[in-house]
Design a protein around this nucleic acid. Structure first.
Length: 494
RNA sequence: GCCCCGGUGGUGUAGCCCGGUCAAGCAUGUUACCCUCUCGAGGUAGCGACGCGGGUUCGAAUCCCGCCCGGGGCACCA
């Protein structure tokens, strides 16, 4: 009888039923108003993976239509972030470079009687929209609208005085369709275009035009935008329908991505900066020791859905660990060390491979009975107990000692079953190191977790000093760490 | 208040469109054992879920209705 087949889970992202190979265009639409974060990276991965599967093209398009929010350094954050992720985009543009084109579409709508200039105060308009009533400007005529529009472009009106609205559907139960704003005056220098423009298109209008201009065939992005409104605008402009697939935000437990929550942490110096390893920014993720490949594989594994979700970091860590395990060197790190003197110890030069499979080279450590070992191990043992110094020899604990001076006696080289094994360093071939131990930035109740960073002091073997910043190794019996700066590591996970 | 979208174990998902093969798969987590000179990796086994209530049906995680809960939208933000 044949054994029952083992079922497999989903492998890769679900296919897009309406995608055609070779005729597939997607886009990454970041607003350069903050540093790129892990959610951008995951959404970018999804788009890039589909681009590859359907042999299409990928746009990197900066949605920089609010000069008050946009900053130059953030454009670069996304470029370097996507590059780090291994995401290659086929085309790049800034929406701010298409302003004249966008003006033409605004004008077309006004001329067609679909748009009008409105000077109602925001709160009045809000009230009217809520009640479904037209404002006094709605039917003032194309000529009047055109002359105001011209004046707006000629900078004759101040910010906050006039906007261009669409004649939407005042009766719609979807309130966002009730005469939405498509262009407004923002008198503030733009990092790219300077003070050339003061009239700026709003997102929902601009994105519809840009997707058409970029020949986008599929929209795959997180779900904080209104499909209905964009469809309405698309229809008014005579653009074909585009396939939209929305997915909800990628949240990680204890690590929100919202700038509103993160900025105070930076400003109040509760974290070291936007690149603090506890932060969800790409810089933070890198410092945590997560590899781009791990993030990529993780994204494909979890996929995307429309339901709310909060990933446990352990899901990502597991992927990261499996990628790291076969390629990282092992170095002995002793947290909270205590001295151990082994009596009658033979002088021994221990040659130990950097990896259990022996493929990453080896180092030799000279020993003479003096060691540093973890205080927690000594604390947990009883006097008289036998343990083993890994790759070296057995020791019988004679005395735990007071003030961190344990004593032991040499008990042979032969491996003994079921003995505790301790990593060790020698006092004269080791150096101090501090390790940043991380946990959730925010507690369950949404407040900052002051315990989110703990500094563990310890000593690491001399050979570790040959590594450069950015390298990731495993400290056996402790975890995978990334060398952050000389003398400082970040514990990514165990 | 109104509109839209969701609710599968501790966590993330597959299945739902086209009802039976689902006494619900995979991953993560956790427990035990094996392996390993790491508390890592690998192996084996166990644990653990269809939001609630009705209905249709021989049969519902899948279809219908009501309820509850969560998220998003209703900006001169994106």
């Amino acid at each position: 009888m044949a054994a029952p087949e083992k079922k497999e889970g989903r492998v890769g992202l679900l296919p897009l039923e309406d995608a055609v190979k070779g005729e597939f265009v997607v886009r990454l639409p970041p607003e350069p108003s903050g540093f790129m974060h892990i959610g951008h990276a995951m959404a970018g991965t999804i788009n890039a993976v589909y681009r590859d599967t359907y042999e299409g093209k990928l746009w990197l398009r900066f949605e920089d239509t609010n000069p008050r929010k946009v900053q130059k350094r953030y454009y670069e954050s996304f470029r370097t972030g996507y590059t780090w992720m291994g995401i290659k985009w086929d085309y790049e543009k800034n929406v701010s470079s298409d302003i004249d084109l966008l003006y033409e579409y605004v004008q077309t709508l006004i001329e067609a009687g679909d748009g009008y200039a409105c000077s109602c105060p925001a709160d009045l308009m809000k009230k009217l929209r809520f009640e479904g009533k037209p404002c006094e400007h709605r039917d003032q005529g194309v000529e009047k609208n055109m002359s105001i529009w011209d004046e707006m472009l000629k900078k004759k009106h101040k910010e906050g005085t006039y906007v261009i609205r669409l004649k939407g559907d005042l009766a719609s139960l979807d309130y966002s369709l009730r005469d939405p704003n498509i262009a407004r005056i923002i008198d503030y220098p733009h990092p790219i275009t300077g003070d050339k423009y003061v009239v700026w298109p709003t997102y929902d209008f601009e994105v519809v035009v840009e997707d058409q201009v970029c020949s986008v065939t599929h929209i795959l992005r997180s779900s904080e935008f209104h499909v209905g409104l964009q469809d309405m605008i698309r229809k008014m402009l005579g653009f074909p329908v585009i396939s939209v697939k929305q997915f909800s935000r990628f949240n990680f437990k204890g690590t929100p991505v919202a700038k509103r929550l993160l900025r105070p942490l930076v400003e109040e110096k509760l974290v070291s900066g936007w690149d603090d390893p506890r932060m969800p920014t790409i810089e933070g993720v890198i410092r945590r020791g997560i590899s781009a490949e791990a993030l990529r594989q993780f994204t494909i594994q979890v996929g995307y859905t429309q339901s709310e979700h909060t990933f446990d970091w352990s899901l990502l860590f597991s992927v990261n660990r499996k990628l790291l395990d076969p390629v990282t060197k092992r170095f002995y790190f002793v947290p909270d060390p205590v001295k151990l003197t082994v009596e009658d110890a033979p002088r021994r030069d221990a040659t130990i491979p950097f990896h259990p499979l022996g493929k990453l080279g080896e180092r030799t450590i000279a020993t003479a009975g003096q060691f540093l070992v973890p205080s927690s191990d000594i604390g947990q043992m009883k006097e008289g107990q036998v343990f083993r110094l890994i790759e070296l020899y057995n020791v019988k604990l004679v005395s735990k000692g007071t003030d961190g001076n344990a004593m032991g006696t040499y008990l042979g080289d032969e491996m003994v079953q079921d003995t505790r094994k301790l990593q060790w360093v020698t006092p004269d071939a080791s150096e101090g190191v501090e390790v940043m131990e991380l946990s959730d930035l925010f507690r369950e109740d949404g407040t900052f977790n002051p315990e989110s960073l703990k500094i563990r002091l310890g000593v690491v073997e001399k050979a570790f000093g040959s590594l450069g910043p950015g390298e990731i190794v495993q400290f056996p019996r402790y975890g995978f760490v990334r060398l952050d700066a000389p003398g400082r590591c970040v514990l990514g996970h165990n």
